[in-house]
Amino acid sequence: MEEKKPKRMAIIASKGTLDMAYPPLILASTAVAMDVEVGIFFTLYGVDIVNKKKYRSLKVAPIANPAMPSPVPFPNILGVLPGMTPLATMMMKSMIKKINWPSIPELLDVCLESGVKMTACTPTLEMTGVSKDDLVAGVEVAGAAEFLDFALDANVNLFV
């Protein structure tokens, strides 16, 4: 029988907030379960998702996010007040717990164990002073051409 070429998905993860860390990892873990070959390219703030010093403490800010649910009516501008980001992060974590979602480190493990290819962007690392040793084991380091080489043959290309 002729071996069918697997489908492929390429994702760029550019954001480092707790909420936006989920979509790339959820799509990646689901796609590998569907026998899709997956690569995630972490760039700019997205590198925090695979930074061991940061990935357990990603935050979400209410400022400039009017969609953020609030227990009381809340003028968005008050998001500048000290303590609002920890408060919003705490709320987000309790919502995550309510639906029994895995944590970001747990979801990363699922992705890495199932063979999701993960790459952190070299200029971002240099810019922010993050070394390869700061990254979760299994995350490689490369630039735009290496990602594009993978993405050019992908069936799905996403920018998150």
């Binding site: 873990s29 689901t30 029994n100």
Partner: peptide, 11 residues
């Protein structure tokens, strides 16, 4: 919740 039912079923 999604994605775990799919991930664990496939595993």
């Amino acid at each position: 919740s999604c994605p775990m039912p799919v991930v664990k079923t496939k595993k």
